[in-house]
Amino acid sequence: MADQVSAREAIEGPIPTLDPAEALARAREGKGYWKRVWESLKDDKVTIVVAIVLLLIFLAAIFAPLIATHDPSKGSIIGRLKGFGYKDHLLGTDETGRDMFSRLVFGARLSLISGVLPVIFALLIGGSLGIAAGYLRGRVNTVIMRSMDVLYAFPSILLAIAICGILGSGLENTLLALTITFIPPIVRVSETVTVQVRSLDFVDAARTSGASSASIMCRHVLNNVLGQILVYTTSLVSLSIILAAGLSFLGLGVTPPDAEWGLMLNNLRQAIWVNPTIAALPGVAIFITSMSFNLLSDGLRQAMDIRL
């Protein structure tokens, strides 16, 4: 396009200059960037499909009472562990005769909450700590990063189990345990990214324009750092779902009779010889959801890397 215009310029003389107000309107920061991300995301079929799948799962969780065909906690002595399409049970029934489809839909609520919320909390806490450590350097950095190293000494699953074991079971404690588990890796990633960006010349250039630290932080550091932290965080959601399911499986997370995929998997474990397809369903749900989050984060990373 540039060539066409300069060709025109050669014939018709200089191009009229841009009105400052229009330039301002055009250069509104950020808008252009996200538009570009969207454009490159649009052509990425896998990411789009995965995003739609996730959207459907989220909608199902939100509108669970409308979608569920049965009461998720109402059992039946006769109709236990029946296969697909038994009576009007679309996906069969579990070990106490409860409708599997309804339980999976309701289970999505708790599973998504325990997958997404701890990551969001950890992002808020760990992100601010990491960016602060990377931006301020010196003592602040040492204190924050060395405390994270202490947490890092435990394997993440073990840490979550230990915290849950101390606090006792229940959704709130699961969320708390997972949040604490995810803070150290997020801090470390944010710190690394911030240190990298901060050492680039454009931050120094911004300093030489006499801008305040707050302004440099917001306009120059944050928007170069957030994208990368966000992508990393998205990949943690799937891990969080799996960890939460694992905690429930061990009896440290959600307590029965609440529907939660990990807990359902645990309860159906004994039925694997009776009806393996039904027993595998919660696992399939966990697999699809965590896989989708992983693919989404991959797609986001590629789309946001347009500057390279």
Binding site: A27, E29, L200, D201, S209, G210, A211, S215
Partner: peptide, 24 residues
């Protein structure tokens, strides 16, 4: 600065990078 790439904010249109000083 020496590094013409690293000394411009990659997430900012260049006109904003130039206007940033006067704005500050």
């Amino acid at each position: 600065f020496q590094d013409s790439y690293a000394s411009l904010n990659p997430r900012m249109p260049i006109s904003m990078s130039i206007a940033y000083g006067p704005l500050s």
